[in-house]
């Protein structure tokens, strides 16, 4: 697949037109306004979901809670920095895109074997990442597995596993907050606030790329003939479009703390573009798995994809110019 973003707007040496905020101010604001609150919502939704699995195996009750948890996950899905990188948390929560039906295979095996030891918190944590997170839970909920007693028990174990990972990630971020406030190195996650600010900025940019390269490009294929709706994220629960919309909202929410440090005109321009981006996402066709094989719907999706790169490029331009942030070339994307 071609790189979808020509990094053409990157300036080699940004000229800073006014006093840029310190990386400590930036890091603290983004972590306090976006990162911790978002993990808080995720952890909270995951707990509501896990508690419900304790009480029922009724799909109609559990499905809305699955969607709420998935929405909350989508808000932080693009972050691959800090506590989520510990203990394979990110892969365990969300093994997607998946390796050759890895989720289906490990789930079917578990359902066939009815291995009761998997139902313990200790065991599920050590199982294949494909079996541990939201994609496996989606399959249980949207197949007959939920009607099977063992299937429901496994769903319960997975829901609790998700809750534990979400909660652990939140706790670790809260524990790292004093380091950011003091500007000191964290023993595992970062050396300095310079690193925190740059990494959060990088993860924000990655978020735009993730929508384009994975959520859209994978099911779209390079042309109509190569489209494959079953490569869309969360197609079983018909939430592929909702995932994109949630991601778009969350990228806006993550960008706004940065935007608050921009000069007025620049802030206004960036906010407008972010709103346009979120608004356009809300008009995307659904379900995506069918839309990708429809000529007209594809046009709409491609228009949105252009808006993704416009938004990203504007952010790069404004943030590097006014916030003292730089985008690495080799450090951002290497092999």
């Amino acid at each position: 697949m071609k790189r979808l973003f020509a990094l053409s707007l990157l300036l080699l040496t940004p000229t800073i037109s006014q006093a840029a905020p310190s990386t400590q101010e930036l890091s603290l604001k983004v972590v306090q306004d976006f990162v911790i609150p978002s993990y808080d919502v995720f952890s909270h939704q995951a707990k509501i979901q896990a508690d419900a699995w304790d009480k029922t195996c009724n799909g109609d009750t559990l499905k809305p809670l699955f969607h709420n948890t998935s929405d909350a996950w989508a808000a932080v899905q693009h972050i691959n920095f800090g506590p989520i990188t510990l203990l394979l948390r990110r892969d365990r929560l969300y093994h997607w895109p998946e390796r050759r039906n890895a989720v289906g295979k490990s789930l079917n095996k578990a359902l066939n074997d009815k291995d009761n030891s998997l139902l313990s918190a200790k065991k599920i944590t050590g199982a294949s990442v494909a079996l541990q997170g939201l994609p496996a839970l989606e399959r249980i909920l949207y197949t007959d597995a939920i009607k099977d007693d063992y299937g429901c028990q496994l769903g319960k174990a997975i829901a609790h596993n998700i809750e534990e990972i979400a909660n652990g990630t939140l706790k670790d971020w809260k524990a790292a907050l004093p380091n950011i406030k003091e500007g000191s190195a964290h023993p595992i996650f970062f050396e300095s606030n310079d690193e925190v600010a740059i990494r959060l900025f990088t993860e924000l940019l990655t978020g735009f790329q993730m929508i384009s390269d994975q959520k859209i490009a994978l099911p779209m294929g390079s042309n109509l003939k190569k489209a494959n709706g079953k490569r869309a994220e969360g197609w079983r629960s018909l939430r592929s479009t909702r995932y994109i919309q949630q991601s778009a909202k969350s990228l806006r929410a993550m960008a706004l703390p940065f935007v608050s440090f921009l000069p007025e005109k620049s802030a206004e321009k960036t906010e407008q573009q972010l709103s346009k981006f979120v608004q356009l996402a809300s008009t995307l066709p659904s379900p995506l798995k069918d839309a990708v094989t429809d000529e007209e719907a594809r046009k709409k999706i491609l228009t949105f994809r252009d808006e993704i790169s416009k938004t990203r490029n504007l952010i790069v331009e404004e943030f590097t110019q006014h916030l003292g942030l730089t985008v690495g070339f080799n450090s951002l994307d290497g092999d």
Binding site: M1, L88, D91, P97, S128, Q214, A217, L218, R231
Partner: peptide, 16 residues
Amino acid sequence: ILTHPNMGRAKLNIDD
């Protein structure tokens, strides 16, 4: 690291 062009640059087997 296992990758598949259908999945872009996504890394598919970090756990094992």
